[in-house]
Amino acid sequence: MILSKLSQKAQKRLIIFSFTIVPIVLLLMFSYYPLVKMVQYSLTDWNGISPSSNYLGFANYEKVFSNPNYFGVFKTSLYYFLSSFPQLGLALLFATILSFKVKFANFWKGILFFPYLLNGVAIGFMFLYFYKTGGTLDSLLHLFGIHHLPLWLGNQSINNISLSFVSIWRYMGFNFLIFLGAIQSVDPEIYEAAEIDGANRWNQFRYIIIPAIRNILFLNIILSVSGSLSVFEVPYIMTGGANGTMTFVIQTVQTAFNYNQVGLASAMAVILLIIVVLVSAAQFILTQDRSDAKKKAGA
């Protein structure tokens, strides 16, 4: 009845507003409001239980920056960052192979991308049994006559490497899909012209594919930095952060819920957010600079 009395233009505006206001309210309620409260808590000594708290100013931030136990866990992120290079290398290799004519190409694409669709908690439990003593990995190595095996998750010298392999297996499909889309966006006539000129697959990869996906490759490296800083699910499920596998996010969660220091944990979360934002901003600026340089070179 109300809509019938409005003009067509007013009806259109009302419908757009009605469909827009709900997601905006949800976004403000579940994203931005908690962010504001987190910043507020980071300036207090709230324990997550008491109805009141004391204002501390930037004391929590000073504690995080001055105590090496908090920032020292970032060295664990290096394992995940370094593992991103073989991850990207394998993803690029499979994307290049499957961009050409291969039998059952869609089947192999599905196999490679499937791990990325799995829930992180499920992956953690899967590899927990994979790495346990007498588990799947040990059984496979026993078949090849290898019997003196380490504790894959208990030995501090290799446990982070073991966890990094889980990250490679999980995220390689995502990088593979991005690389595949970038490679397939190249004009097929370029490959045909290269074949006529006698270029083999390696030359096509080196002189056609790599220059075409340079920006995508650079973007994935930057994303690997922010991803390695925020690792949580897999190490939390598999080791709980024990034996040197503690990450900054796990430490933040334990500070909040195990030690009831929500104010300090909020400060840690704000610091991590700022680092990720800075990395994302650097990625945007560097990508823009590369795009602008490429346009100038083309001009």
Rank of each mutant, 00 (worst) to 15 (best):
E189A: 13
L180P: 03
I183Y: 07
M172K: 04
E189H: 07
Y191F: 15
A182G: 14
N200T: 05
A199K: 03
A193I: 07
L180W: 12
D197Q: 13
F174G: 04
I168Q: 09
L177C: 05
E189L: 07
P188L: 13
N175E: 06
Y171V: 02
L177N: 00
G198E: 08
L180H: 13
Y191R: 10
S185Q: 09
S164W: 11
R170Q: 15
E195A: 15
F179R: 03
I183S: 08
L180V: 08
G198L: 09
A182D: 00
Q184H: 01
I190A: 00
A182Y: 02
D187S: 11
A199G: 12
N203G: 13
Q184I: 09
Y191E: 06
G198H: 11
A194Q: 12
G173Q: 04
Y171E: 10
Y171L: 01
G198M: 08
R170M: 12
S164K: 06
W169F: 13
L177M: 15
A193E: 03
G198C: 12
F174S: 05
G198K: 08
Y171K: 02
I190T: 07
V186S: 00
V166A: 07
D187M: 01
D187K: 08
N200M: 09
F174V: 09
I183E: 07
F174D: 06
F176S: 03
L163T: 02
L177A: 15
R170N: 10
S185V: 01
Q184F: 02
P188W: 10
S185E: 08
I178Q: 02
L163H: 00
V186P: 00
F165P: 05
E195V: 11
F174H: 14
G181V: 08
I178V: 15
Q184K: 14
Y171F: 15
S185Y: 01
F179D: 01
N203R: 14
I196T: 11
I168T: 11
Y191I: 08
S167Y: 14
I196K: 06
F165K: 06
L177R: 00
N203I: 05
D197E: 15
S164R: 03
R201F: 10
Q184P: 02
L163A: 04
Y191H: 11
I196G: 05
S167C: 04
V166F: 09
F176M: 09
F176T: 01
W169E: 09
Y171M: 02
Y171P: 00
Q184G: 03
Y171N: 14
A199Y: 12
F176Y: 14
M172N: 04
G181I: 04
V186T: 04
F174W: 15
M172E: 03
G181L: 02
G173N: 07
D197F: 14
